[in-house]
Amino acid sequence: MQIAVVVNGEEHVRDVEPRLLLVHFLREDLGLTGTHWGCDTSNCGVCVVHLDGVPVKSCTVLAVMADGREVRTVEGLARGADLDPVQRGFIACHGLQCGFCTPGMLMTARWLLDHDPDPSTEDIRAALSGQLCRCTGYENIVRSVRWAAENGSEAAS
């Protein structure tokens, strides 16, 4: 069926099978490979994107469910050369190693700061608790989000 999805501000009209998962629509149909998939069962969170402004696990959303809605992916975080504060925070605080979980972590961190500009470390850990990282032990991810809270009061615009 035909769907129209606004992804990172740009409308895409595509004919898709109803069973196509949103993560595959983004990766295969639109070539936005920054969103990864890692577990099939909505446990790992490397596939997190914003759907109408809310973080969701795109491996467990059908592309057809995004018809008429807005999706934002990691590719839509920066504004040109200006990185979002969460992106700068992850670089500054060594918040990533292999980079595979990073896009999902960034998307949730952005959403968290949009709703709570000064989260405690406990708030950050709770907000990220649906997303796994195998490299960092989470410590520097938490510090990265705090860095973003302290050094970038608002998203890149």
Partner: peptide, 8 residues
């Protein structure tokens, strides 16, 4: 990596 530009 922070731009989603890694290549796996």
């Amino acid at each position: 990596f922070v731009r989603g530009r890694g290549t796996y």
